[in-house]
Design a protein around this nucleic acid. Structure first.
Length: 641
RNA sequence: GCCGUUUUAGCUCAGUGGUAGAGCACUUCCUUGGUAAGGAAGAGGUCAUGGGUUCAAAUCCCAUAAAUGGCUCCA
């Protein structure tokens, strides 16, 4: 009689050999119907497997991320089954679940390809197969048998995967006429897959290595209800409407020119207004937090990057050196600001009493990203980091980290990013040799980061092996208004550059000590941050940030003079906006103002001019009626606080 | 960098072997108007660039560039 523990802590006795399904059925009929898999002591398993005595068990449904992942993984098998029917001889590589749906990498063989025109047929076949309610049957298979099966099937990819598996660990899953090498787990049967959509076809390298053969990767997604698919597609449409590349053009924020060069954004007046406001905002917060603004040149001598180590690592794959009339003299566009800031640190001898020093710079840097990497403003070749470097004693790392966390949270809050977690990236504990710096310092810094995050009550995820070779880091993973995740504020500890630049301070005992360097960028880069912000707010920027807060719309040219009066009154109160003095009807001016997402449209005509009032229309809310100019100013200012 | 797709007027796009189109934007004129597009006329294009095939190329082929969906990468 196995006894298991449920998530609420309660105990339950089950008959011998009871399965996850039996457990679900013993709780409620509905749960049994909706159960997809079962979580046994943290391991997701098939519902059909017997539960071990004493286990902690939770039933996974569509509402659990792990339940969804199982569902989508099973859907990948279903798609593979459909592909085998429609493209006989297709070779299958791997087919995992991903954040939204699943993919399967397949080798169609010479001369065959799949395009989006083929998707509807594949979807149809998937749903047809799903209707059969085929069970996913798990079977443990001896290695020799597995090899024999895939040799017979002539599938080189599965055979390669099998090489790395040990006998006794190999399982097959079969549904309908399709059998796949798979660790599982899977949902009970295909009957719950009611809606299927292939999203995309792309090339992908076998095992992610660009030296390997390129396979066809088919992305798909499935749902238990057709309605959920429709909602998902609607969310994608919304993401398209918010795309910063589209809005950036429509709102005249930035542009690209082939003649200027790929990945080199041109900031238009409105985009510049937005960006400069963001800069001012952060500059002010940083000065309050004890940062010292510095400015450094856009280029640096080759020697600077030989010292920093970047020349060796990136020199050949980056923008090539700038030469001068002096033979042998070479300068590089700066790919980061740290080396310059190290040299600023070195301009005077430092005492332990002077630390920490915090140098901040909105530094424009250039990196030759591979042509295929460029993407709107999120991945460019010239961008401005909201960079700063904190030079501190090892015992100050935690305190400085906490202060940076405060600053990042202040920034995120001001821009209405509510939902975020912190990802802490530490050393791979099994492979410490690939990191620079002493064990002692690493332990200190890793502990400092974890404690700082805990004391700031951040929700954290810890990733081992994700640290940079020169130090551990913490990144803010931010969820935007439509649920997408972005990596925004980043804080990194660095032991490498202080070493390479031989940075020192004099300790209390008069010994020379090496400071720790902390890199941090709350925005990351202005370019990327503006892109994320555009998509987060769909182009409706916060009032304090928006390039144009109001447009005054005179009903006819008789009231243009009064419009200027209104504008002057508002500008005197530090509000910013323009006048639409075109020879157009008011309906047209309102439409254009709304399309530009201007927060306030101020209609002025005969009544307004006579009484010294404005008729206010707010974006998204419509006509608010008329009010004295002073009242309007007050109401706007109350929102800016 | 790799695989696929795309590139036609300022913007969004139609045109698929027989010498280029629409809507919006722009210019001019009419209109002086009250909360999401007033009317008319006009101007604007080496069809990304360079080769090739053809009597004839925006259209077919090749190369290059840029954009784009992925992959790989991201100091």
């Amino acid at each position: 009689m196995p006894q298991i523990t449920l998530p609420d802590g309660s105990l339950r006795q089950l008959p011998d050999h009871a399965t996850g399904y039996d457990l679900a059925a013993s709780i409620s009929e509905g749960l049994a119907r909706n159960a997809l898999a079962v979580n046994v002591n943290g391991e997701v398993r098939d519902l059909t497997r017997a539960l071990p005595d004493g286990a902690s068990v939770s039933i996974l449904t569509w509402n659990d991320p792990l339940g969804k992942a199982t569902y989508w993984h099973s859907s990948a098998h279903l798609m593979a089954e459909a592909l085998e029917v429609m493209y006989p001889g297709v070779k299958l590589a791997i087919g995992p679940a991903i954040e939204n749906g699943f993919y399967y990498d397949v080798d169609l063989g010479e001369g065959r390809s799949i395009s989006s025109n083929d998707f509807p047929e594949i979807e149809k076949k998937m749903l047809e197969l799903a209707k059969a309610k085929s069970q996913y049957i798990r079977r443990e298979v001896p290695k020799a048998e597995a090899i024999a099966y895939f040799t017979e099937k002539q599938d080189p990819y599965k055979l390669e995967l099998l090489e790395n598996l040990e006998d006794g660990q190999i399982t097959f899953y079969t549904q309908g006429n399709f059998t796949d090498l798979c660790r599982g787990p899977h949902i009970p049967d295909t009957g719950t897959i009611k809606a299927a959509k292939l999203m995309n076809v792309a090339g992908a390298f076998w095992r992610g290595d660009e030296k390997n053969k390129q396979l066809t990767r088919l992305y798909g997604i499935t749902f238990p209800k057709a309605k959920e698919l429709a909602e998902y597609l609607e969310r994608l449409e919304e993401a398209k409407r918010r795309d910063h590349r589209k809005l950036g053009k429509e709102l005249k924020l930035f542009a690209f020119s082939e003649r200027v060069g790929a990945g080199l954004p041109l900031w238009l007046p409105k985009g510049t207004a937005l960006r400069e406001r963001l800069e001012q905002f952060l500059r002010k917060a940083q000065i309050k937090a004890g940062y010292l603004p510095v400015v450094t040149p856009h280029i640096g001598a080759k020697e600077l990057y030989v010292t920093s180590g970047h020349y060796e690592k990136y020199g050949a794959d980056s923008f090539q050196p700038i030469r001068t009339p002096n033979p042998g003299e070479e300068f590089f566009l700066k790919p980061m600001n740290c080396p310059h800031h190290c040299e600023i640190y070195k301009t005077e001898p430092r005492s332990y009493r002077d630390l920490p020093v915090r140098y901040a710079e909105f530094g424009t840097v250039y990196r030759y990203e591979q042509s295929g990497e460029l993407h709107g403003l999120t991945r460019v070749r010239g961008f401005t980091q909201d960079d700063a470097h904190i030079f501190c004693r090892p015992d100050q790392v935690k305190e400085e980290f906490k202060k940076v966390i405060d600053l990042v949270q202040y920034v995120l809050k001001a821009l209405d990013f509510q939902d975020y977690t912190a990802q802490i990236s530490l050393r791979d504990p099994d492979n410490k040799t690939k990191y620079i710096g002493s064990d002692e310092n690493w332990a200190l810094a890793e502990a400092a980061i974890q404690e700082a995050a805990a004391e700031k009550q951040l929700t954290t995820v810890t990733e081992y092996g994700e640290a940079a070779f020169y130090g551990p880091k913490l990144d803010f993973m931010v969820r935007d208004a439509i649920g997408r995740r972005w990596q925004l504020g980043t804080i990194q500890v660095d032991y490498n550059l202080p070493e390479r630049f031989e940075l020192e301070y004099t300790a209390a005992d008069n010994s020379k000590q090496r400071p720790v360097m902390i890199h941090r960028a709350p925005f990351g880069s202005l370019e990327r941050f503006v892109a994320v912000l555009i998509e987060h707010c769909g182009g409706n920027f916060p009032l304090w940030l928006t390039p144009e807060q109001f447009i005054v719309l005179p009903i006819s040219d008789k009231y243009v003079e009064y419009a200027h009066e209104v504008k002057a009154r508002l500008e005197a109160e530090d509000l910013r906006g323009t006048i639409d003095g075109r020879d157009e009807r008011i309906g047209r001016k309102i439409r254009d103002g709304e399309m530009a997402k201007t927060p306030y449209l101020l209609v002025v005509g005969e009544k307004e001019a006579q009484d010294g009032i404005v008729s206010v229309r707010k974006h998204g809310e419509g006509d608010l009626g008329s009010m004295p100019i002073a009242d309007f100013i007050k109401s706007v200012q109350s929102q800016l606080l």
